[in-house]
Design a protein around this nucleic acid. Structure first.
Length: 357
DNA sequence: AAATGTCACAACCGCCGCCAA
DNA sequence: GTTGGCGGCGGTTGTGACATT
């Protein structure tokens, strides 16, 4: 048996809300609360579906809604949370006071998602797009042969990706999953890295990574996507976070549920996605994404890390700096630059990236 | 100035989970 | 255990504003 519609649609108005309707809805809720959404329209004298009233209230009329542009911190938070939660917009919204799931979803689809795609990042996995890697490897032969047709440029991906760079990035990522010691050897065997300079620099990179992170093995990680590769763990993380959208560390929760770093104990820290897009130093202090740009001055004293994101309760005072620079106040190029810096793969200085460009 | 394309966002639709009867 | 009501969620659409040709 089919389910009855949420309301009798006959004679009910659809489409944009008028000021009069808004006022009626606000007046009614302020006096009586919303109560049952199903009966609200009738009681409030509105020819609307209860669901429509609820959406209008939660997405637009609610007094605690923070309107206006998203700050850098908010965008960063969205990206980080999305890498864990996926399209759980309500869960993400719970971590961003004053923002609605609809607003975040729209912002993601219209801004962040496109920007990540433009940068060659898969907005679903938050890792370099493997399709681009494959495509660029096919096209790669033309990169060192200027006489060949630059299909990649024609396809518009040339400014985004360099095949070897992306493949390097992919290997770096996958190397964190597998045995780093085998990488130089596999590099030698991989004739795609035909450039000896790249091989040398990559070997140095691997050694440096080993020195800096002597024990970096991540169990059960079998793909290049180090962010969230295990569906079960992904789900576990989602469940953990979703089930407690408000009660995060620092609130009235059992302290033994969380570690000192604010990460729930049930979340294996090894499986916390590498959310440091090179945007934080190892000591978790913020790396200014664009020191040259005054528009990108961030408060370096803010210890804004992933744990702090998770520990920012929706009901608590804002830890996000609401007076901070807004994303939309800068140019698209600047925002790309900002995101580009979020995509750095912690490649040390000794690796001269200009050689890949 | 008009036509066309693109973007941003409010709103809708349909499905799902929870809960009470 | 089943059914139906309800609220909530995520995906999609419609439309006005703005940009480009």
């Amino acid at each position: 048996m089919g389910r009855a519609p949420c309301c009798d649609k006959n004679g009910l108005k659809k489409g944009p809300w008028t000021q009069e309707e808004d006022q009626k809805l606000m007046d009614y809720i302020q006096k009586h609360g919303h109560g049952s959404w199903r009966t609200l329209p009738k009681n409030a004298g509105l020819a609307r579906c209860g669901k429509s009233c609820r959406l209008r209230w939660t997405n637009y009329l609610r007094p605690d809604i923070k309107r206006g542009r998203f700050s850098f911190e908010e965008e960063e938070t969205i990206i980080q949370l999305h890498s864990i939660l996926g399209n759980k917009w309500s869960a993400i919204a719970a971590r961003l006071p004053g923002r609605t799931d609809n607003e975040i979803k729209n912002y993601w689809n219209t801004h962040i998602r496109k920007r990540l795609l433009r940068m060659g990042i898969d907005p679903v996995t938050h890792s370099p797009r493997l399709d681009l890697l494959d495509l660029s490897s096919i096209l790669g032969s033309s990169i060192y042969n200027p006489t060949q047709l630059h299909l990649s440029r024609l396809l518009g991906i040339d400014p985004l990706v360099n095949s070897e760079l992306l493949r390097l990035a992919s290997n770096i990522l996958s190397s964190q999953c597998n045995n780093l010691n085998l990488l130089p050897q596999s590099l030698q065997e991989n004739d795609q890295f035909s450039n000896p300079q790249i091989q040398n620099q990559f070997s140095s990179l691997v050694q440096t990574q080993q020195l800096q992170n002597p024990i970096q093995e991540i169990p059960s990680c079998t793909t290049a996507n180090t962010f969230v590769s295990d569906p079960q763990l992904m789900q576990a993380n989602v469940d953990q976070i979703s089930s407690n959208p408000i009660d995060f560390p620092g609130q009235n929760v059992q302290s033994d549920l969380y570690q000192d770093n604010g990460v729930p104990c049930s979340l294996d820290p090894n499986f916390m996605p590498n959310l440091n897009y090179g945007y934080f130093n190892s000591d978790q202090s913020i790396v200014d994404p664009s020191p040259e740009s005054s528009d990108f001055q961030l408060n370096h004293n803010q210890n804004f890390n992933f744990a702090s994101v998770l520990s920012t309760p929706a009901s608590s005072p804002m830890t996000l700096n609401s007076s901070s620079t807004h994303i939309n106040s800068s140019t698209e190029d600047e925002r790309d630059s900002y995101c580009s810096n979020m995509l750095k793969f912690e490649i040390p200085d000794l690796l001269d990236m200009s050689d890949f460009m």
